[in-house]
């Protein structure tokens, strides 16, 4: 009897995350000698990221991959990833994720009946605008920037001097084209795949946040697995994480080259100016419930 784990996610089958999950399924099948398998449901067929998390809690879906942002509504610790310039650089970011801190953050999901199995790379998010290029934080003044529906993301844009405007992802292309918002922010592959570069010709690599993707499993499903099965699954996940992170680097470079080819002006940023701009917000957050965690992250060398 084959044990099938159903996995839903919101990205399309050509996305690196989907390919990494196919790899995960292949490895799981090999490791378990064909007794375990993964069935993928891409493109948000089974619901939005927030709804997929709920399906894990309900027990009708085994696993999912979601951005850390929608997890805020379930576990407040996840607000961490929307803090601008919390990570010094990419090396620091991965060091934190792969350390005890990263594991503690995943463990914080347990009371919500979820288990985090690992982090995929979702790159760094940067601004893109339609009308005029942004070079310094001053250029963001009263510019309407689309944000995800997240209180932490709103606070972040406000701290950077922009004017946060919540717009749903599916409507963003027309909103940019028609001028309902003047810009948005995302990682290079998403900027490219969403075709937003067609209407937003300026992309500044200020890399204000790094919000990872989290691989989740329902706690009910996890606890029904034997220890051996858990080990197989964890190994398959770990290997798919390695594959995804390597592939993501290539995707990012390819996306930046492709948007430049399409006529987008890619601007390198003086990040220190942006960092200075948000120091007030970070001091404020340090005094709050996330304070100890922020300190631990900053101490990682």
């Amino acid at each position: 009897d084959v044990m099938v784990l159903r996995v839903g996610h919101s990205l399309d089958p050509s996305h690196t995350v989907h390919k990494a999950m196919l790899k995960m399924g292949e490895r799981l099948q090999q490791l378990s000698g064909g007794t375990m398998a993964i069935e993928l449901y891409p493109s948000g067929q089974l619901g939005s990221e927030r709804e997929l998390i709920e399906l894990l809690q309900i027990g009708s879906l085994a696993m999912t991959k979601v951005s850390a942002s929608p997890l805020e509504g379930f576990v407040p610790t996840m607000k961490l990833f929307n803090i601008p310039y919390l990570f010094r650089d990419q090396e620091h970011f991965f060091k934190v994720l792969d350390s005890d801190i990263g594991r503690d953050i995943l463990a914080s999901l347990k009371p919500a009946q979820l288990l985090g199995l690992g982090y995929y790379d979702a790159g760094s998010r940067s601004f893109y605008t339609t009308k005029k290029p942004v070079v310094t934080p001053a250029d963001l003044a009263s510019v309407k920037i689309r944000v995800q529906e997240s209180q932490a993301a709103m606070a972040m844009i406000r701290a950077l001097g922009g004017n946060p405007t919540p717009i749903s992802w599916g409507e963003l292309y027309t909103a940019l084209q028609q001028g309902v918002v003047d810009g948005a922010e995302n990682n290079p592959p998403s900027f490219y795949l969403s075709r937003h570069y067609e209407v937003a010709p300026y992309y500044i690599l200020d890399e204000h946040t790094s919000v990872p993707d989290v691989i989740l499993i329902s706690r009910y499903v996890w606890e029904r697995l034997s220890e051996q099965q858990q080990a197989w699954l964890q190994q398959a996940v770990d290997e798919s994480v390695d594959f995804q992170r390597a592939q993501w680097q290539l995707d990012t470079e390819a996306a930046l080259a492709a948007v430049q080819e399409a006529g987008v002006q890619v601007i390198s940023a003086d990040k220190s100016q942006f960092q200075q701009q948000v120091s007030g917000l970070i001091n404020e957050l340090k005094a709050g419930e996330l304070g100890p965690m922020i300190q631990r992250i900053e101490e990682v060398q």
Partner: peptide, 19 residues
């Protein structure tokens, strides 16, 4: 245009220009 369903298709197809 504008048409939301065409945007949904463009995203589902993973590479068609919305414009």
């Amino acid at each position: 245009p504008p048409s939301n369903i065409l945007i949904v298709y463009a995203i589902a197809s993973g590479g068609v220009s919305i414009a």
